[in-house]
Simulated scan of single mutants.
Amino acid sequence: MTRRIDGTAVARRIRAEVASEVARLHPDPSTAPGLATILVGDDPASAVYVAAKRKAVREAGMQDLHVSLPAEATQAEVAGVIDRLAQDPVVSGILLQLPLPAGLESGALINRIPPSKDVDGLTTASAGLLARDQPGLRPCTPAGVIELLDSEGVTIEGAKACVVGRSDLVGRPMGQMLLNRDATVTVAHKETRDLISATREADILVVATGVQGLIGREHVKPGATVIDVGIHRTPTGLTGDVRAEELEGFAKCLTPVPGGVGPMTIAMLMVNTLRAAQWAVAVP
């Protein structure tokens, strides 16, 4: 039988551990770590995502420091908010919700976030720390994947790993994290000429393409661990980048959609916010 990796349970445990640590270190709520979320515009999906993150912050006993800006906000206005939050000692972490309205340059704005407060792990400086395998805040979704692999006792060291997708949010940092854990890593993408040859050798296959049902049995090594990062809404419910039904009894482990990688993203955001606060105190 293929074992389903229960991301909901792992995320619940991690969030409870964060809440416990916050309560232990900050009996006075006014000193608790603070996460500043910035929402520009009124995109419905972004509003839902930010609301879920803010709820998790409050449940963890941390300070919910939200800033909402109109869709008409200029580059300079958003930059000014980020600069103000960067200087505020109450703010442990800063999250700029993406995508931004047309006309705003997200890369330039993200790079205004200090690496020490970059809880999404998306700044160029954070990417450099990851590439050098130096301490820093890591992108939440790939960090969550590593937690899931560890929770299942999947051996990363020495394994052949393939990441399908090369986005800055998931694919690129995912490949680097696996490499930093001593896996032999292949990163495949839309220009890969023989995708099956790239994926079929992998002991660990992480799929993050945004292409519904791209990966099936023909792509997977028997006994592999398959992590499906994709999520798509269909008339019959949510599904991923992997044709999961084809892997039953074939793959060793598989993350379900929903309930696999998804819950881990917010859990690791809570971890990053607490870690940022702890590092800020540790800096002389």
Rank of each mutant, 00 (worst) to 15 (best):
T2K: 11
R4G: 05
G7W: 06
A9L: 13
A16D: 10
V18R: 15
E21L: 00
E21M: 00
E21R: 05
L25D: 08
L25N: 07
P29L: 00
A32D: 00
A36W: 09
A36R: 13
V40D: 00
D43F: 09
A52L: 10
K55E: 10
A56F: 03
V57W: 11
G61S: 03
G61L: 00
L65G: 14
H66A: 11
H66E: 07
V67I: 12
L69G: 04
E72D: 12
E72T: 15
A73Q: 06
T74I: 08
Q75T: 11
G80V: 13
D83L: 15
R84C: 14
L85N: 08
D88H: 15
S92I: 14
L96N: 02
L98T: 11
L98F: 13
P99W: 09
A108C: 08
S116G: 13
K117W: 07
V119Q: 07
G121R: 01
A125I: 11
L130A: 15
R132H: 14
Q134K: 14
Q134Y: 14
L137F: 13
G144V: 07
S151I: 00
E152D: 04
A161D: 03
V164L: 07
L169P: 03
P173F: 10
M174K: 05
Q176Y: 09
Q176W: 10
Q176E: 12
D182L: 02
T184S: 01
T184H: 00
T186D: 13
V187A: 03
K190I: 09
T192A: 06
T192P: 07
R193C: 01
D194C: 02
I196M: 03
S197M: 05
R200E: 13
R200T: 13
I204V: 10
I204Q: 03
L205E: 04
V207A: 06
V207P: 06
A208W: 08
A208N: 09
T209H: 04
V211C: 06
Q212R: 05
Q212Y: 00
G213V: 01
L214D: 04
V220I: 12
P222C: 08
T225V: 06
T225C: 04
V226T: 10
I227M: 15
D228C: 07
D228N: 12
G230H: 09
I231K: 07
I231H: 08
R233S: 03
T234K: 02
P235K: 04
T236P: 06
G237A: 09
G237H: 11
G240V: 08
D241H: 06
E246G: 01
A251P: 02
C253A: 15
C253L: 15
P258M: 10
V261Y: 07
T265R: 04
R275T: 12
Q278A: 00
W279M: 08
A280P: 03
V281G: 05
V283T: 01
V283W: 01
